[in-house]
Design a protein around this nucleic acid. Structure first.
Lengths: 220, 220
DNA sequence: CTCAAAATGTTGTAAAAACAACACAATTTC
DNA sequence: GAAATTGTGTTGTTTTTACAACATTTTGAG
């Protein structure tokens, strides 16, 4: 089956055999798209058609507000999914923009079919639903984490909280983050140069050290 | 059945008959608790035991960070639920504090049973799961909305974006919000007096008007 | 490897927000 | 209904952030 090796690598479809996937592909009306770096995968404002899953490559999810300010919501990696909430909440247009940061392979799935377990041959559909729920809950959790960061009252606390969360996630005081400085500023919704100053001061104070995307927290 | 009239009013259990609810209550090991105003319903750091649903009264959900700063996450009304994500994400302790703002009736449900449709007599369990998924997705949507607010770069934009969202939700340029000024400042993670100044200036400029919790947006 | 583009750190300045203190209004409690 | 508590708007001060401009480094494309 087309692209099955990539599909199999994703958490949501990992348990599905190639045979079952055939039926599922039909049921979900699966389609594939290739994108080059910097291509727009989903454009904000476009009518909601499908749920999108990134199979290969990388992308960034951004939101543009009415003033034209762009904010980085998160980076996408293989297996990440967009559009479940949109469809479910009865939105008629996509609320964010998904842009390829490298060459990508993307899988499109029919949003109506996805969340409704059917009585058809595709007997594995219930597994997909369960995984989707898991993913939405995880996403919910991540959103809550980010919300806590943005609730901090100054840049220093935002950065430290972010780094501590990443450190905890990595299970080490030495860890890499997915963002460069410019992206991190954007992610935390702060000015880039102010972030740069703050990071320098934190290094000065001996609280942290860093190089490129690699960081080290020195004190608890 | 005990408290059935209250249970029936909640979206999640609305379709369930009293008879089916009996079986479900047994399956989910439902328990009830009464709380007085200012009582702690869930304490941050406590071991995760149950999923909690507010049946009657009001409550507020807050988070206390390591520095001791408290931030208001949201207000709870009847039918609102807490603890689904916690349990599902394998957290062993509650991450937030839920406090009664009025006298409350609360329903506790076993978190392990809740999300796993069973083969028992309680044949309506699948409906509950579907509603839960809906609620998690809605919550996800709300979190994303709040995230967009907190990403705005100054108080004026935060407030305007919040009021516009509330206006849209109410379907009118005249609407009530659930927060007083102090709570709103807390919700938006800004200083109360700075918020007060901003609101006054916006009124001065003729963009909005307000009285207590009632607001009016004058220009689009 | 070379050159253009993008990212980074630094600095000074202007703007915004936090903080603190206060008087007064509104609400709650007894 | 009186007293105590909580909420609100205002003001001045201090701190923090955004903004802008720049030199330097790093990255990426051809």
């Amino acid at each position: 089956m087309e692209n099955f090796s990539e599909i199999q690598k994703t958490k949501i479809f990992a348990e599905i055999s190639e045979f079952d996937m055939q039926a599922l592909a039909y049921c979900l009306k699966i389609k594939f798209r290739n994108y080059n770096k910097n291509d727009t995968i989903i454009a904000q404002g476009q009518p909601v058609e499908d749920v999108v899953m990134l199979l290969k490559g990388g992308a960034k999810l951004e939101n543009i507000d009415p003033f034209g300010d762009i904010s980085l919501i998160t980076k996408f990696k293989a297996g990440d999914i967009y559009g479940v909430e949109n469809g479910f909440m009865g939105e008629t247009t996509y609320k964010d923009t998904l842009t390829a940061t490298e060459n990508c392979l993307v899988m499109l799935m029919n949003r109506h079919r996805l969340l409704t377990p059917c009585e058809n041959k595709c007997k594995r559909h219930d597994i997909i639903v369960r995984h989707l729920v898991q993913m939405v809950i995880e996403r919910n959790y991540e959103l809550t984490e980010k919300l806590k960061l943005l609730s901090k009252k100054n840049i220093k606390e935002k950065v430290l909280a972010y780094l501590q969360a990443q450190s905890k996630k990595a299970g080490s005081l030495y860890f890499d983050i997915p963002y460069n400085k410019t992206e991190l500023a954007n992610y935390l919704s702060v000015d880039r140069s102010a972030l740069s100053t703050t990071l320098s001061r934190l290094r000065e104070e001996g609280l942290i050290d860093f190089d490129k995307k690699h960081y080290h927290i020195k004190k608890g």
